[in-house]
């Protein structure tokens, strides 16, 4: 069943890409979660997927994983249909914490090894290459010392890193991360972001849903803003603007505007806008969007 996946040699890895065009996704209960959405992403990209709760982020992930079939439109990954891309092990998925059964009797090692199944034979017996890949992946996320732990016996941030290691071990060229920063401290977040930057440098494509608006300009070069459809998509500088966010979030954001006198007592009439959906506030200096927004830090560093 996995012959194709096993036969991918390093030289033949297809260039990662995601193309979604005119996609409408409906659930069995008739709810149209995503309507006529389109965006395209290429290799060497970290793309943020942002939107309010229920705007269809997880739905888009499920569609990319072949779990939901679009009622209309086309989805292609690395130039292939979703099924073909999955068969070749091109897509790795880091699940939201709630989706995992933490009481399941598997060790960290076992979970990471699950990423290698596509590379193994019919009976999934790990070979040397698989053990090495798993070990390297654990090393990269700094979790090697926990490899013999049952997965439920880890902290939230450690759990995230295990699943990230699984995606690494799989060698997926397209990596989907559903809210990887929820419940993760700043140190771990920086670690994950650092790792994602490395993966981008290797040419991989990552799609990340997050409510941490503040850190997006830090590490994402592309942004897709959704609310039942794609409101805006493109490079961070031109897409991640106050206007677009206002459209997407409306009243859902906490919005502080510090103007004139309350900011400083001189004649500078520029103002500071702080937008926060979750933890790291997004700060705009002035009202011109093309000025590079500076990201606020939870730990108080500028």
């Amino acid at each position: 069943m996995n012959r194709e996946a096993a036969e991918i040699r390093p030289g033949q890895v297809p260039t990662p890409s995601i193309v979604i065009s005119g996609v409408t996704v409906r659930y069995a209960n008739g709810v149209t979660a995503v309507n006529d959405a389109s965006f395209a992403l290429g290799p060497g990209t970290i793309c943020a997927l942002v939107g309010v709760n229920g705007s269809g982020k997880s739905t888009i992930f499920k569609t990319l994983m072949g779990f939901l079939k679009p009622a209309q439109g086309l989805v292609s990954i690395a130039g292939m249909e979703v099924r073909a891309a999955l068969k070749r092990g091109l897509v790795a998925y880091v699940p939201q914490a709630e989706e995992v059964d933490w009481t399941f009797p598997v060790l960290v090692d076992d979970v990471v090894m699950m990423g290698r199944y596509g590379h193994m034979g019919f009976m999934r017996l790990p070979r040397k290459a698989d053990r090495e890949a798993a070990e390297q992946a654990l090393e990269r996320v700094n979790m090697l010392e926990f490899r013999r732990r049952q997965i439920g016996e880890l902290s939230g941030g450690q759990r995230k890193r295990v699943f990230l290691a699984r995606a690494l071990a799989q060698g997926g060229q397209v990596i989907l991360l559903d809210e990887p920063f929820t419940g993760v401290d700043v140190k771990t977040e920086d670690q994950i972001v650092g790792l994602m930057r490395e993966l981008r440098a290797e040419g991989r494509l990552m799609l990340v849903s997050t409510h941490n608006l503040g850190s997006i300009p830090d590490f994402c070069d592309q942004v897709v803003i959704v609310n039942k459809t794609v409101l805006a998509a493109g490079p961070t500088e031109s897409t991640f603007t106050q206007d677009n966010l206002q459209k997407a979030f409306g009243g859902a954001l906490r919005h502080f505007r510090l103007e004139g006198a309350s900011l400083h007592a001189d004649a500078d009439e520029r103002r500071v806008t702080v937008i926060t959906d979750d933890e790291r506030p997004l700060v705009f200096y002035g009202d011109r969007d093309h000025e590079k927004p500076a990201a606020g830090r939870k730990d108080g560093q500028p």
């Binding site: 069943m1 068969k87 699940p95 598997v106 990423g115 199944y117 596509g118």
Partner: peptide, 23 residues
């Protein structure tokens, strides 16, 4: 005995099962 690992993966994490090409 031949498929216990695949079944385990399906029971543990269907999405990952799909991601490694299983049905």
């Amino acid at each position: 005995l031949l498929r216990w690992k695949d079944l385990m993966l399906v029971f543990f994490d269907e999405n990952q099962a799909r991601a490694v090409g299983l049905s």
